[in-house]
Design a protein around this nucleic acid. Structure first.
Lengths: 354, 354
DNA sequence: TTGAAAGCGCTAACAG
DNA sequence: CTGTTAGCGCTTTCAA
């Protein structure tokens, strides 16, 4: 291929207006100390010539690269893509993150890194060296991966930690898993349920624990017992199946179940069917994440929506602010999650209390 | 923010081994004229020091940027993301394209551009100027947008055109829409259907026409009439609803319908239900694209799968080959599409022929 | 086969 | 307020 040069450079603009490169640079970066009149002339020339700064050159001269990396777990992400079950985590990240990036002239690059490999750090440093991003967005389970967090802290790169509460480094952003679980629980309590089962997610994800906490909290609030009503899963369909079977085999089975993932909710739905239980008549069901397929199940599932787009957008904002040296929030940023009511919750049937 | 410099540069490696920068550069780029022994020593040092070339610097000095842009239509993409109906086009592009990129040390950046704006060209040139990508992947309807194609051809940037047959510029890659439509039609014919309706997609997309062609071809092959059996839609649910209603209101309605998009298939399913028609007993249905939700409908829909990942992967391969100056395929690259049989097709009922 | 010099487009640091 | 100078890290000449 022919060597490709920039069509219009800062030089052309400077020559056109008859000023120095530096003045043009100042205008581009919106720096002070340029006479309004001059600034205007430069801007006019920029528009007229269609000049756009090369981010490579900007990066080279030590300023920003205008690149933000969204770091996702390789195995899980690829597995989701291949499974084609409608998980739209990456899409929602792009929707929130990429559009926010665009507003500020940044680009978002999705990068996959293996949490479980012993060379996470090497992979990460390689990506940083190659791209020199201005910031990095960590998603679970990376957000609380000590190796990754330490590495990033050492590199002094601003990074957001989605789904983390840690205050030791980076900027934690929470999707309020605990609050959401409590909301789901209260919603069921309000519908008259007293035995509410909970299927937890993978222990590797801290948010799994927070969701359990929220459930326990709301159950305690309502004076309801939780013993035996908690079963562990790992977000997968298979694990949901096992947990649902166990829960429904209880001597006094729950009349409602909250599943920590859509896949596990789907599994619960199927197990209920197999047990001759109609949802929501015999069993109410609330799911977590609200991926697209929740609208298409029979019945459509009531779910806690994970506000991924809003969270990613906020993460980008924080990074850009940090990069500019702006004041950052002291507390953990919390993005509220909401319950999407559909057709899988009904009033608990009037059981004659024994 | 503190000015961040490369931790390990080509300089460090050169100093470490005791050779010139140029020699290290040659090793990195796998160029000839380096003694094997030396090459090995350099490579060892690179590994040991954890050196990774800066893409920005590589770009600056006139070589590759190792960046490939995936250009999608802004409005449609954002609408899909917001709608959260499980469209996983972007995910599949990443699955195929990004992973192939990674194999070659490239990154893929998703870029949204407005096909319909009068400043497409400006947007495009801005992205090119900012990123200086080594190649661009066009997706429908960009792939046949004359402004975009001309602009890219002028820029001499290698670009792949997904869903295009045009041989005037760039590298066309087809997902064999025509063949797939014919396959779907033959599949229905084999099931005894003789009146097979077709709901076309948006005219703006050339593939809409090819799908119609495939259907017409297979119908002709089977000696079946097509008059009145074709209705136009625009891929949307609403348009599918209208088309399905029209088709089913025919004096002699079809016993099977092929919809050019999943959304239109969904609409058809609903219209059939409203008309008291059971799918597949009273109406067989084949859909196009095979987005994730097709597995979750009642019944699950038989669909033509769009091989997006394979296509994106191929597009990246072509671009990298073009960039290296390799020999390129003369003909249009065709990626086969396949039919995924599920539960929405049944044998045509024995109607006493009049 | 190897190395030295020049420069890509831009900005930081310093002058004026 | 504006301009000049010196690189950033790499590759492309060109020379040895």
């Amino acid at each position: 291929m022919a060597r490709r040069r920039q069509a219009v450079t800062i030089r052309h603009v400077a020559a056109d207006v008859g000023v120095s490169l530096q003045t043009v640079s100042r205008v581009i970066n919106n720096e002070p100390n340029v006479r309004p009149e001059l600034k205007e002339r430069v801007q006019e020339a920029i528009t007229r010539l269609g000049y756009v700064p090369s981010i490579a050159a900007q990066r080279m001269s030590g300023s920003r690269s205008y690149l933000i990396l969204a770091l996702n777990d390789r195995d899980r992400t690829i597995a989701d893509w291949r499974a084609r079950q409608g998980t739209d985590w990456v899409d929602q990240m792009l929707l929130g993150g990429m559009l926010k990036c665009a507003e500020h002239g940044y680009r978002m690059i999705v990068e996959l890194v293996d949490t479980h490999s012993d060379h996470v750090e090497r992979e990460l440093l390689a990506a940083i060296a190659a791209l020199q991003p201005d910031g990095i967005i960590l998603t679970p389970p990376h957000s609380d991966n000590p190796q990754i967090v330490r590495c990033l802290a050492e590199q002094q790169i601003p990074f957001a930690r989605i789904g983390s509460k840690a205050r030791d480094a980076g900027m934690p952003i929470l999707m309020d898993d605990e609050g959401a679980a409590a909301t789901a629980t209260r919603y069921l309590v309000d519908h008259g349920h007293r035995r509410i089962g909970f299927i937890a997610g993978a222990a590797e994800y801290n948010l799994s624990g927070w969701r359990v906490d929220g459930w326990k909290l709301a159950m305690a609030e309502a004076g309801l017992p939780t013993d035996g009503l908690l079963h562990a899963g790992d977000f997968s369909y298979a694990s949901g199946e096992r947990a649902a079977r166990a829960l429904l085999a209880l001597p006094e089975p729950p009349t409602a179940i909250i599943a920590s993932s859509d896949q596990m909710a789907l599994a619960t739905l199927e197990v209920a069917r197999q047990n001759g239980l109609a949802v929501p008549r015999d069993l109410s069901l609330v799911s977590f994440d609200n991926t697209p397929m929740m609208q298409f199940t029979q019945p459509p599932l009531t779910a806690i929506d994970q506000p991924i787009a809003a969270t990613a957008s906020k993460a980008v904002e924080l990074i850009i602010a940090a990069q500019k040296g702006d004041h950052l929030p002291e507390a953990v940023t919390v993005i509220p999650a909401s319950l999407v009511a559909r057709g899988s919750v009904a009033d608990a049937r009037q059981t004659v209390s024994a």
